[in-house]
């Protein structure tokens, strides 16, 4: 089968978004809508550009795109209102007999 390659290995923009990095981490952030003030601190610091303050009807709070979140915990650590908690993914919750 013939594949296509670009001249000189030139790449099109934003192809990285095909790569879902959401399964990298052991933890994931959970936003407490009540505590979130939509200050966007988490949004500014997220290295994976996957937490954004969005409007949900009347409400406005940070929402995580779990397709990409690597679970680093920066959003939780920088949140001035302690509105983001890191939780262990279920898959890592196992008991050692």
């Amino acid at each position: 089968m013939k594949i296509k390659i670009n001249l000189g290995a030139i790449s099109e923009p934003m192809q990285s978004e095909k790569l879902k990095t959401g399964d990298w981490g052991t933890h994931y952030p959970v936003v407490d809508k009540e505590k979130c003030t939509a200050c966007k601190t988490c949004e500014q610091y997220c290295p994976d550009l996957c937490i954004e303050v969005e409007e949900f009807g009347e409400e406005k709070y940070a929402a995580v795109d779990y397709n990409y979140c690597k679970g680093c915990g920066i959003c939780s650590s920088v949140c001035p209102f302690e509105a983001i908690k890191m939780e262990l993914k279920d898959i890592f919750k196992f008991e050692v007999c």
């Binding site: 990095t21 990298w24 994976d48 690597k70």
Partner: peptide, 23 residues
């Protein structure tokens, strides 16, 4: 508008993408 995409290969918690997207 995003100028740097998600899905890049930085380690979780890496400072580089934070700097790059801010710039």
């Amino acid at each position: 508008m995003k100028y740097f995409g998600s899905g890049h290969g930085a380690c979780p918690g890496c400072g580089l993408p934070i700097a790059v997207k801010t710039v």
